[in-house]
Amino acid sequence: MTPYEQYIALLTLLRKEIRRYTRIWTQTLLPSAITMSLYFLIFGSLIGSRIGQMGGVSYMEFVVPGLIMMAIVTNSYANVVSSFFGSKFNNSIEELLVSPTPNHIILLGFVSGGVSRGMLVAVIVTTVASLFVELNIHSYAVVVAVVALTSVLFSLCGLINAVFANTFDDISIVPTFVLTPLTYLGGVFYSLELLPDFWATVSQANPLVYVVNAFRFGVLGVSDVSVGFAFAMIGSFTLVAYLYAAHLLRTGKRLRT
């Protein structure tokens, strides 16, 4: 395919993904707004007012970046895992596999769909958050870079999950038993400084720690880890996930017999 034809194929995949999740917006966009409103209300406003400061800022300000990032992570992951597995389930993935669309465009197409939903949800949740707390962004560059990299990373993870999934149960196991615990243990609600040394060290293996702290730095200018190191870690996780996802598509594992 010529570069222009590849561009059309990519746009087609992105358009298809956006139409899919906007068509079912009550299942894809609305829940995050409602859930995050409750988080802001309960943890930020009601309980947070009794906690006082954390990391040098009010507890409400402290949790907002983590909650926004939580919404981005779950939505970018959920978009790709459900869309790709759905295509496998109804065999419409064959439309793509028999076409000359290169694997990297297929990958990019699904990932850009996940990124677009992650970013759209980020805007919605940030708008909701601004009703509870005044947000003065410390660094727009860091915010945009972290959101982009994180949504790419978790979109790729969603695709890998979808490739291996055989049933709809398989696509809910990872979000329930892996993603959610990692998010809660990734410093969304607390500073790593509160943890004993051992658990603080263990937390270094959790990619969500870097995602949440880098984003918190972008919004508030405070972080438990070095921002440069956090970017290096997120970038490394993304590269590994990309190479593995590309390998799965190239070999046709679970896609071709």
């Binding site: 395919m1 010529t2 222009y4 034809e5 590849q6 059309i8 194929a9 746009l11 087609t12 995949l13 358009r15 298809k16 139409r19 759905g86 295509s87 109804n90 065999n91 419409s92 064959e94 439309e95 793509l96 076409s99 000359p100 669309t101």
Partner: peptide, 25 residues
């Protein structure tokens, strides 16, 4: 193919537009 392999929730036009797009049309 022998078995139906399109997304039944998409319209006829969308199915065809998507397939054309995958060929760079």
């Amino acid at each position: 193919p022998q078995e139906f392999n399109f997304n039944v929730f998409e319209s006829v036009e969308d199915i065809l537009i998507h397939q054309a797009g995958y060929y760079g049309i």
